[in-house]
């Protein structure tokens, strides 16, 4: 696992976007060779999406031969609701780029049969050849996708009931009324993400500092599901200074010492 420490969220967004661009372009995708990308939602990756849109507009990057799989979606929330992840992905990313609609995959939380929907999702990932690069964010409790604390670290895509903390945190997006917050979500499992060839986890802000400490300095623990990625062969955690507040100086210094090496990964 690599930890990349940058100054601020703007740099995190830019670094991540440059990395995604380099990986896709180096892959040289084409009609018979699609690049498969896993995507998150939330506040942290927003800046990365903005940068990627810029790259597409400038002609430096194309999503014509990219397939995407999103991590999660609420259950029983109208797709047009501003908090739905369909809405998020469409408005913040897909409508601005040249991706083809048939190459986009987001779990359907309104499907008649949610179990089948999850099984099909896993199958579609397999059929696409597996995820080349999965990008994720984490919650303050260290959850990745909607794999809440206590989730199995070998979980697959499934229906998940949300933790009380998550409901309370989300109430602000639903008129501050916890009863309006969807109680369930469909989410890829920890194992689903673990199978990706590469994983990029974006972590910014002091509120995520404790989770980052748990993920990096403590052992693998299903109460902090992101910690599972310590055992992934190719994971980058990209964080800003604020997110390192709970880490030991030694840890931060070690990884900052590798800055030059890390920057070579994005061709700088």
């Amino acid at each position: 696992m690599r930890l990349i420490v940058l100054d601020n969220p703007v740099q995190v967004a830019e670094w991540a976007a440059k990395y995604v661009m380099k990986r896709i372009n180096d892959f040289k995708p084409g009609p018979h060779k699609y690049f498969v990308l896993g995507l998150p939602t939330g506040g942290t990756p927003l800046g990365m999406y903005k940068k990627l849109i810029e790259f597409v507009k400038d002609g430096k990057l194309s999503f014509e031969y990219v397939k995407t799989f999103n991590m999660d979606e609420y259950v029983n929330l109208d797709r047009k609701h501003p908090e739905s992840y369909h809405y998020y992905m469409w408005n913040n990313f897909f409508k601005h780029i040249d991706i083809k609609p048939e190459n986009v995959h987001i779990l359907d939380g309104n499907a008649a049969d949610l179990t089948t929907e999850c099984e099909n999702y896993e199958r579609k990932i397999l059929e696409a050849g597996g995820v080349e690069l999965f990008i994720g964010g984490i919650g303050p409790d260290g959850h990745i996708a909607f794999n809440e604390p206590g989730s199995s670290l070998v979980s697959r895509t499934r229906l998940k009931t949300l933790a009380q903390d998550t409901l309370e945190a989300n109430a602000r997006f639903f008129d501050n009324d916890i009863n309006k917050v969807p109680k369930q979500a469909l989410t890829v499992g920890v194992a689903t993400v673990m199978e990706a060839k590469e994983v990029l986890i974006l972590i910014t802000g002091a509120s995520k500092a404790f989770a980052l400490y748990k993920a990096v300095e403590e052992g693998v623990n299903h109460m902090w599901t992101v910690s599972a990625f310590q055992q992934h062969p190719n994971t980058f955690m990209i964080c800003d200074e604020d997110a390192t507040l709970e880490l030991r100086v030694k840890t931060v210094k070690y990884f900052k010492g590798l800055t030059k090496l890390h920057n070579s990964l994005i061709g700088q």
């Binding site: 797709r79 809405y87 469409w90 409508k95 083809k100 609609p101 048939e102 986009v104 987001i106």
Partner: peptide, 24 residues
């Protein structure tokens, strides 16, 4: 900054075209 989508003489919501019809 946005795109404008038109069909049948009307302005349409491209979100439905993208996710349901899946056509460019």
């Amino acid at each position: 900054d946005d795109h404008l989508w038109v069909r049948g003489g009307k302005i349409i919501d491209p979100e439905g075209v993208f996710f349901d019809e899946k056509v460019p």
